[in-house]
Nucleic acid binder design. Structure first.
Length: 421
RNA sequence: GUGACUGUGGUGAAGUGGUUAACACGGCGGAUUGUGGUUCCGUUAUGCGUGGGUUCGAUCCCCAUCAGUCACCCCA
């Protein structure tokens, strides 16, 4: 169908774009406040990068990637998320060469082949940040603080921050065994999905929405109780920093991230009113990812925020006032002969930095006045027969409804004084 | 990938197996010939997502397909 875009895509029309500019600007403001610099990486990467980075067994990789072969026979993939790409760029551009923490942010489209639903699109946009280099839990807290501040700055409330630790390559495998041991005899009673999760990703069972699974796993041992010394210390450190920053959080031992690269800190911010897709922000630490991508062992942490979901949340809270068109001066040529001088005035106004516009379809006087009204014009500049003959223009003040006929230069001056200040 | 519901003009929508597809908003034109936000009049779908089928005849029935919505799954 030529008149409909691909499934799961969305056109951002001029009125919506105003909202986008707003939330993007807020993101940039926060990032500069926290000393994060923007990075813009390509929209597609070698498929291999995502296979290695995200994990071959994850849903994102197994069934959600837009992968194709280019004309050179290489397999490339539209990025389903951006952390792997940022890490690749960090390595390629040697952004860590100065020995400092690389603090980066990005805003842009991501692609996941999924069934669209409320808050879920095939092309969607994420604002994300990454801090690559530092190990201490204070960065974790900083990352979380950026997310929380961002939502606050947009006026969003009733958000829920949940944190957990998913351990590291030392303690997670051990926990996995402990958990499987606990669940083994209960496995036949688990839901269909969880049966398959038992081998693939047993931690996900804790996150299942099925009530029976919840019941069966209620007393399961928790990751936080099985953390190695280092991870445990990191996790309690994080909590101290969060408290110091006055950030409220909930411990959620069942919080699991879907991508393989996460270690230690995992967190999620939910906006419960959004329905099934209520996570507006998800993130965590990825201490093994850089090495996995072929770099030196370097820790990192970041988050991603779903911009469409942010907009949905703002809509729910009525933080998006209806867009208003604002054109301070509307120019009206009353006859075809008048369009030339009218166009001339338009040009001069714009040259002065004054937003002005006129009709180009030869509509009636009345219709043009209506247009002026629609765009909330403060002044209307009318060119009729008399004006043409005397080289003047009629300036009508739309708020008080009064009008005068003036020489062009005088009118221009008046508009300049009243609108440019 | 699975399931449920939906698909009529710019928008919100009514509607029936059978000549001209209600109504409202919006748009456009007009109401002593050059003026807005109020009022009044007129006008505004070659057509009921698309493609098949049933029928003498379908926008209304059936099938397929596409799209939207919500949920599962997954995640931002």
């Amino acid at each position: 169908m030529l008149t409909s875009g691909p499934r799961g895509t969305h056109d951002i029309t001029p009125n919506e774009a105003k909202n986008w500019l707003r939330i993007e600007a807020a993101a940039r403001t926060i990032c500069s406040l926290y000393h994060y610099g923007e990075i813009r990486t390509p929209i597609f990467e070698h498929t291999e990068l995502f296979l290695r980075g995200i994990g071959e067994t994850t849903d994102v990789v197994q069934k959600e990637m837009y992968t194709f072969t280019d004309r050179g026979g290489r397999s490339v993939t539209l990025r389903p998320e951006n952390t792997a790409a940022v890490v690749r760029s960090y390595l390629e551009q040697k952004l860590g060469a100065d020995g400092q923490t690389a603090k980066l942010f990005y805003i842009g489209p991501m692609f996941r082949y999924d069934r669209p639903q409320a808050g879920r699109l095939r092309q969607f946009h994420q604002f994300g940040i990454e801090a690559i280099g530092p190990t201490g839990p204070s960065v974790d807290a900083e990352i979380i603080a950026v997310a929380v501040r961002y939502f606050e700055s947009l006026g969003l409330s009733s958000l829920k921050l949940m944190i957990n630790s998913v351990g590291c390559p030392k303690c997670r495998p051990q926990y996995r065994v402990v958990l499987q041991d606990f669940l083994r005899d209960k496995q036949p009673d688990l839901c269909h999905d969880c049966q398959s999760r038992f081998e693939r990703n047993p931690m996900r069972i804790l996150d299942c929405k099925e009530e029976k699974c919840n019941r069966l796993s209620a007393d399961a041992p928790q990751m936080v109780d099985c953390l190695c010394e280092e991870c445990a210390a990191h996790f309690s450190g994080l909590q101290q920093f969060l408290q110091a920053a006055g950030i409220e959080y909930t411990l959620n031992p069942r919080l699991v991230r879907g991508l393989d690269y996460y270690t230690k800190t995992a967190f999620e911010i939910q906006y419960p009113l959004l329905g099934a897709q209520s996570a507006v922000c998800g993130g965590g630490r990825y201490d093994g990812l850089i090495e996995e991508c072929g770099g030196p062992a370097t820790p990192g942490i970041g988050f991603a925020i779903g911009m469409e979901r942010v907009l949905l949340a703002m809509e729910k809270q009525q933080l998006l006032p209806p867009a208003q068109d604002e054109v301070p001066v509307w120019v009206i040529p009353m006859a075809p002969e008048a369009t030339l001088p009218a166009f001339g005035l338009l040009n001069q106004l714009r040259g002065l930095g004054i937003c002005a516009d006129m009709d180009h379809s030869g509509r009636s006087m009345k219709s043009q006045m209506k247009q002026a009204n629609r765009v909330n014009a403060k002044y209307v500049a009318i060119f009729g027969e008399t004006e043409l003959q005397t080289n003047q223009v009629t300036l009508k003040n739309m708020t008080i409804g009064e009008q005068t006929m003036l020489p062009l230069a005088t009118a221009l001056n008046q508009l300049k004084q009243e609108l440019n200040g």
